[in-house]
Deep mutational scan, measured.
Amino acid sequence: PEDLERKVRELQKNGVSPEQIEKILRRDGVDEREVQELVKKVS
């Protein structure tokens, strides 16, 4: 979803590592495939 992507970009802009971003997304209940997609987009 659009807002998730925005969140991921925000986190990355704040210097959060892709690994941390993955953890955060998983903790928020984002589905694994979605997590991978989002992280791939920003890394």
Rank of each mutant, 00 (worst) to 15 (best):
P1F: 14
P1Y: 14
P1G: 12
P1K: 14
E2N: 12
E2H: 12
E2I: 12
E2R: 13
E2Y: 14
D3M: 10
D3E: 12
D3V: 09
D3I: 08
D3N: 10
L4N: 05
L4H: 04
L4G: 01
L4W: 11
L4S: 02
E5A: 11
E5V: 12
E5H: 09
R6Q: 11
R6G: 07
R6E: 09
K7G: 01
K7C: 10
K7P: 00
K7W: 14
V8N: 00
V8L: 04
V8A: 04
V8Y: 07
R9T: 03
R9M: 07
R9C: 15
E10W: 15
E10Q: 12
E10K: 09
E10C: 15
E10S: 07
L11M: 10
Q12A: 15
K13V: 05
K13H: 07
K13P: 00
K13S: 08
K13Y: 07
K13Q: 10
K13F: 07
K13M: 11
N14Y: 10
N14I: 10
N14S: 11
N14R: 14
N14G: 07
G15H: 04
G15K: 04
G15R: 04
G15A: 02
G15Y: 02
V16K: 09
V16A: 11
V16E: 04
S17M: 04
S17I: 03
S17E: 04
S17Q: 05
P18C: 11
P18T: 12
P18Q: 10
E19G: 07
E19L: 07
E19N: 06
Q20A: 09
Q20G: 07
Q20T: 08
Q20R: 05
I21T: 01
I21Y: 01
I21L: 04
I21K: 00
I21W: 03
E22A: 14
E22L: 15
E22W: 12
E22N: 04
K23C: 15
K23L: 12
K23H: 09
K23G: 08
K23Y: 10
L25D: 00
L25V: 01
L25N: 00
R26V: 11
R26P: 00
D28K: 12
D28S: 13
D28T: 08
D28E: 13
D28C: 15
D28V: 10
D28M: 15
D28P: 03
G29P: 01
G29S: 02
G29Q: 02
V30D: 02
V30N: 03
D31C: 06
D31Y: 03
D31R: 04
D31V: 04
E32A: 08
E32V: 06
E32T: 04
E32F: 07
E32R: 03
R33S: 10
R33I: 08
R33T: 10
R33M: 09
R33A: 13
E34N: 07
E34P: 01
E34I: 15
E34G: 04
E34L: 15
V35N: 01
V35M: 05
V35T: 03
V35I: 15
Q36M: 09
Q36Y: 06
Q36K: 10
E37K: 08
E37P: 01
E37V: 06
E37M: 09
E37W: 08
E37I: 09
L38W: 12
L38I: 13
V39T: 03
V39K: 03
K40H: 10
K40S: 11
K40C: 09
K40V: 06
K41L: 14
K41N: 08
K41F: 06
K41A: 09
K41T: 06
V42I: 14
V42K: 03
V42H: 05
V42M: 13
S43Y: 15
S43L: 15
S43Q: 12
